[in-house]
Design a protein around this nucleic acid. Structure first.
Lengths: 143, 143
DNA sequence: TCTTGACCCTGTAGTAACTCCAGGGTCCAT
DNA sequence: ATGGACCCTGGAGTTACTACAGGGTCAAGA
């Protein structure tokens, strides 16, 4: 493998991705097919590391591959007219902000639980479900 | 259906969940089996609304059902000794905080894109991938 | 040089978490 | 009393991986 080039296993370790998942992303077109070595091994460069890291994180945040694909398209054709892109961006922005709000309520409650634990004793009065309950509603659940 | 009680369809609408998903959660024990009406229809109360809302939001945030189950257990047996709970809570807390950080970087970039669009023109200089790239590393990708 | 263990290849099958559909029963407003 | 909306169960299909099976590549060491 040439310098600066990574085997599929090395790429997997760097990005916390299983080798099979990388091949799967290639098959469905999320990752471009890399160059091959003389022995037919896949050979990845730094762009692949960046792209795969992005994909994995967005997936980890609960967005479907379809959304990942849309975001990658934004990055791949940055000179598209804005009209067609704006709606997508605003939509994703709303979802991202909603997720941040939910996560912060979850964090608050986990934090409270952790402190309650430190002061010895039992978990008593766990309000973790209330943390994400309907009365904190922002409208999306109850149309 | 008695007053205050909901049909499966009504519960679905209230929580933004497909009817089939609700039955699936019952089958795998995430939601307790509700009472049945004379005609064998499922009949849900307010606790089901709260619990299902919680499940859906935690899933939407990218946590697996296994984690949801662990969090529900926290809520279901709030007088467990803390030792066995603390590790779980701290672990979830770390993951929640990591996700918040990632989402905030994503929001920043989407925000930048949206503003760039408002000022007319093209998407030029899309840095959405960089927003979640390896050099913002917190360690979890590169062990 | 030969071998052996770690790593790679393709292709197929299995899993998690839904999602959809077929075939049929219930409810109620007209 | 009847047609349309909604419910039931059971099973197949989808998405996004994940795990083999069967075989090739490669570098280190005997």
């Amino acid at each position: 493998m040439a310098k600066q080039e990574l085997s599929i296993g090395a790429l997997g370790k760097l990005t916390g991705t299983k080798v099979e998942t990388i091949r799967f992303y290639e098959k469905i077109g999320i990752l471009p097919a890399p160059a091959r070595t003389a022995g037919n091994y896949r050979s990845y460069g730094h762009d692949h590391v960046r792209r795969l890291t992005f994909v994995r994180r967005v997936r980890d945040l609960g967005f479907p591959l379809e959304t990942v694909r849309a975001m990658l398209d934004l990055a791949d054709q940055p000179d598209r007219p804005c009209g067609e892109v704006d709606a997508l961006v605003v939509e994703q922005l709303n979802e991202v902000e909603r997720k941040i709000a939910d996560l912060e309520r979850l964090r608050e409650e986990l934090d409270r639980l952790a402190h309650q634990c430190r002061r010895g004793g039992r978990v008593a009065e766990c309000r973790i479900i209330e943390a994400l309950s309907p009365h904190h509603e922002d409208g999306r659940c109850c149309p």
